Amino acid sequence: MSWTAFAAVFVAFFLTHSIPVRPGIKARLTRTFGARGFGMGYSLLSTAMLVLLIWAAGQAPYVELWPHMLWQRHSAHLGMLTVCLILALSIARPNPFSFGGAHNDRYDPERPGVTRFTRHPILLALAIWAGVHLLPNGDLAHVLLFGVLGSFAVAGHALIDRRKRREMGAEQWQALEAQRRAAPLLQAPASWTGFIGRLAFALGLFATLLWAHPYVIGVSAL
């Protein structure tokens, strides 16, 4: 694959990922497919585009920037376990500070869960994923891939904060933020059964990613 083709896949990736922040396009798709249909369809599309982009990076011309070493792979495993834990503790949980929260009207700022540590856990997970994958992938195409995606995740914090402050109103946003920051860093979960279930999901997701890596990405993570 040429650098031009790799760049074209990159552009297509960002175009598809701009859909949720374009109210007109999102509204039309939601009216056509329903909120649930849009959510499921967009999740499948974004996942497929990410896999395509990673595959394209592997097909781009190889230009080594630093050599691969075993410790880099172990660091990536530890980082990905952290990513899985963050995802398991944040998916389908109320989060009025970010996009995609479930039942945001039920959000309790005095028991904010993982949002006590970050308003945008999904973006944090993406940033960690990109960062730990930079270590064992020291060629130019993958450095561009993970460097851009990691920067996109970091920049997304400020972009989403501005949009949500505008939607909620600065005074309401600030009051909710103050309550979130005042909550204890560590609290007993409201449901130990639900908490243990999410931890089990995190471990299962981590094991699944290790198993699927050679089939989906083409390279073993081990």
Results as ranks from 00 to 15, higher is better:
120 H>V: 06
61 P>Q: 04
100 G>N: 01
71 W>I: 10
196 I>K: 12
132 V>E: 11
26 K>A: 04
17 H>A: 04
98 S>D: 15
34 G>S: 09
47 T>N: 04
218 G>V: 10
160 I>A: 00
132 V>K: 08
19 I>A: 00
122 I>M: 09
206 F>H: 10
58 G>N: 11
136 P>F: 01
199 L>P: 11
88 A>Q: 01
16 T>I: 14
60 A>S: 10
6 F>C: 06
123 L>P: 04
53 L>M: 12
117 F>R: 00
129 W>N: 06
70 L>H: 01
60 A>N: 09
175 A>Q: 14
72 Q>N: 03
185 L>E: 12
7 A>K: 08
43 S>G: 11
52 L>T: 15
136 P>K: 01
156 G>Q: 03
163 R>Y: 10
48 A>K: 01
113 G>Q: 04
26 K>Y: 07
115 T>F: 02
172 Q>E: 13
4 T>N: 08
212 A>V: 12
65 L>F: 11
93 R>G: 02
163 R>T: 14
105 D>M: 07
22 R>H: 11
192 W>Q: 15
165 R>K: 15
68 H>S: 15
193 T>P: 13
125 A>F: 00
117 F>L: 14
138 G>T: 13
111 R>L: 12
56 A>S: 15
33 F>G: 06
201 F>G: 02
1 M>Y: 07
13 F>H: 10
131 G>D: 04
86 I>A: 02
172 Q>L: 14
67 P>V: 02
13 F>M: 09
107 Y>W: 07
33 F>T: 10
17 H>D: 12
97 F>A: 04
106 R>D: 14
65 L>G: 08
187 Q>L: 14
113 G>M: 03
150 G>M: 08
175 A>G: 10
219 V>N: 07
212 A>I: 13
210 L>H: 12
93 R>N: 03
